[in-house]
Amino acid sequence: MAAPAVLLLLAFLIVPVILGFVLSFTNARLISPEPTSFTGVDNFVRAFTADPTFFRSLLNTFAFAAVVVPVQAGFGLVLAILVNQKIRGAVAFRVVFFIPVVTSIVVVSILWKFMYQPDGLINSFIDSITFGAWQGTAWLNNPSTALTAIIVLSIWQAVGFHMLIWLSGLQTIPGELYEAARIDGAGSWRQFRDVTWPCLRPTRVFVLITITIAALGLFVQIDVMTQGGPVDSTSTLVYHAVRMGYRQQQIGYGSALSLVFFVLVLIVALVQRFLTRDKD
């Protein structure tokens, strides 16, 4: 009974993983007059020594993750604590905060690109709250602001998801613990630090790992909004892998770049195993 699922996973997940590994060491092209041949580690040498865009993409990917992981996790936790209060309307707010998550990221990218136009909504808002003191900038056309602009909308879109994960963690904490802390005279901050935070440990690991893996895989926003520009300031690892592997049809080289991404994800997953191991 497991056969259909196992066969499909084999054909469309395990074989592609192995194939990607093998292709990384070849000069395979999608359509090529010459036969594919093994080229050893040439693709990796090329990536790390002769492809400045790859290096820039790697840096951008790390920069994106370095901001998005803590901000999105922290913001998600704040939202979860707010909607976890026993007050009327909390459920309605939870629904509202989750709405961007069910909106397609392609839609979100197009919408925010429109709002980031030089004469768009964001700049006119900045203009009106600073009474014209600051006119804003062409956010996506400026190499020093483009990645930040993408970070903002990425968090806006995804944070509701992690709010819910945090929330389900918060709801597993028994109320008696807070009761006991209150009797011991602990204020809100002490209750958070000594009860909530330690109890959220498993949730915390899960949230951080899922955000990290998603952040390292940043692609759609780049493809729709900037195509990696201006001057590679928003090119990311996965975007570059797709650009080389598919658009320029260098399957071998693209596979090698994808493998670099996969190794990063594996490292993150191993860190997760390490972090969740020591508690039992």
Binding site: L9, P16, L23, G217, A241, Y246, V265
Partner: peptide
Amino acid sequence: IIIATLIVPFETIAVPMVYWVS
């Protein structure tokens, strides 16, 4: 094996998969 597949993001196999399905 099924649990191991959970950590493979689709982006890592997209490029080889194009070659595979072709």
